[in-house]
Nucleic acid binder design. Structure first.
Lengths: 262, 262
DNA sequence: TCCTGACATTTTGTATACACCTAGTCAACC
DNA sequence: GGTTGACTAGGTGTATACAAAATGTCAGGA
């Protein structure tokens, strides 16, 4: 149930055909929540353009997002832009002020801690659930993602760090998918972490990045062992250790920038 | 920051009056996220009407919500109806199917368990945080709400049970507010439980209701003692015990309907 | 010189009109 | 008679036009 409102729903829904005369007797027969076909393009274009502009910093924190301008630059009208902004607001990418419109949120340190607290709670719970239900295919996928991340990180090239971040998101998403709780996945992925964590690895030192990658391996091991407590603990560890790498205040210090990692 | 997108933002944001000669340097200065004034009325009307119709069963599960009809019955046009539906979808009250529109979701038993698992995780964590930061005023409010619920329940009249449900929501919301984590509150309140739990108490037996009310008292005690683990445990208990009262399958049995209590 | 008031601009909020897609129905063909 | 095809209706998706509201500016007065 509850398909992700706009997210790229790559999940086979499976249970669409509960059409078996479900109690309702009236003529206004509720039709079965049919299969999601293809998403239209206007809202999707506006959505992804705005989203990536926020993520990559083109739209800096505090910026006022005017609907007309976004509509022009996206090549669509204001209506789909509004819908896209609403979705982005629901996911925490923008903030709305009643008669002023949408703004790129400014993250405070308190926000940062809120988000990581929630990530720790939700994803460690997801890891616990996943340890119960994980399949061999899930484990293969997780191992493959971990390996890809290690490869990308080993290259040492900063431009690969975005790949690492993307793979990291996929890894965490895969764990949440393996948990079997779709709402949990939706919450953890959409509402919580994305805006902050997306470009995260740019700031990791080489050794911290290595530790993060080792965490991933250990998460897979814990899941493979079907050890719920271990899985929960290592996932919690993994996320809470990342918190301190990414504090907004740490922008200046700039630790060892990844280079020359064998 | 991140004010609740559509919720009645009753928070004094404080930093509204930077109106004095625009201390900014550039013209495209990001303006401060100003105070939330008054929410418009069209979307709000549509939103609350649709929402309550879903909650009270006027719109049964599986029903197709046609925008034009909703617009007519709400006295507004389709545009605000669409926005209201988007918000409701983000909160789990409706589901969207691409070129078919919005439907009232049908809750399966699996959905039910997903939701209660998440509630248990989020709200017990909220109780833990709240035990750290709860103020005397918070405790007073919680005690007052608990007392009101007991009064309403003692009356034994089934029509008061909706009041109990509303007070229950306020109680849980107050705990989450006391946690100090706004995102946690937003997640726990908006995305997770509301549609299912709202009309919940109609199904409680008298003794179960009493137990639930005692839980509330114990939650307050745990918070007053500033005992994080106690608060977390009793909140978890409170929610998980409620899970089994509300299973969809239990519709037929219909236990002792509250009467003559007190 | 500073404050107060109204005005004008800009942007959001809302309404409506149009286009495309989906689904259901009916007819033609195999 | 069953199946396939196109047609028709209904509804969502999108675009645009209009109204309301807020902000910033400017003039007038104390």
């Amino acid at each position: 149930m509850t398909p992700p409102i706009g997210g790229a729903g790559a999940e086979p829904d499976g249970l669409a055909a509960a059409t078996t005369t479900t109690a309702a007797t009236t003529a206004t027969r509720p039709r079965p929540p049919a299969r999601p076909r293809t998403m239209p393009k206007a809202v999707e274009r506006a959505y992804s353009q705005i989203r990536s502009a926020i993520v990559d910093g083109t739209f800096p924190p505090g910026m006022h997002l005017e609907e007309e301008g976004l509509a022009d630059s996206s090549g669509v009208s204001r209506t789909p832009v509004r819908e896209a902004l609403r979705r982005l607001a629901a996911e925490g990418f923008v903030e709305f002020v009643p008669h002023q419109g949408a703004f790129v949120p400014t993250w405070t340190e308190a926000d940062h801690h809120e988000i990581f607290d929630l990530r720790a709670v939700l994803e460690s719970f997801g890891a616990r659930l996943a340890a119960r239900r994980v399949s061999a295919a899930d484990l293969d996928e997780l191992r493959a993602l971990a390996a890809e991340m290690e490869t990308a990180a080993r290259s040492g090239r900063p431009d690969r760090l975005d790949d690492v971040a993307a793979l990291n998101n996929r890894f965490h998403g895969a764990v949440l998918a393996a948990s079997g709780n779709r709402r949990l996945r939706q919450l953890a992925q959409a509402t919580v972490a994305v805006p902050l964590v997306l470009r995260t690895f740019q700031r990791y030192s080489a050794e911290r990045l290595q530790r993060s990658l080792r965490h991933h391996r250990e998460i897979v091991d814990a899941l493979a062992a079907r050890d719920e407590s271990w899985a929960e603990a290592i996932m919690r560890t993994h996320i809470l250790s990342a918190r301190w790498e990414l504090l907004p205040a740490r922008e200046a210090p700039e630790p060892d920038p990844i280079d020359s990692e064998g």
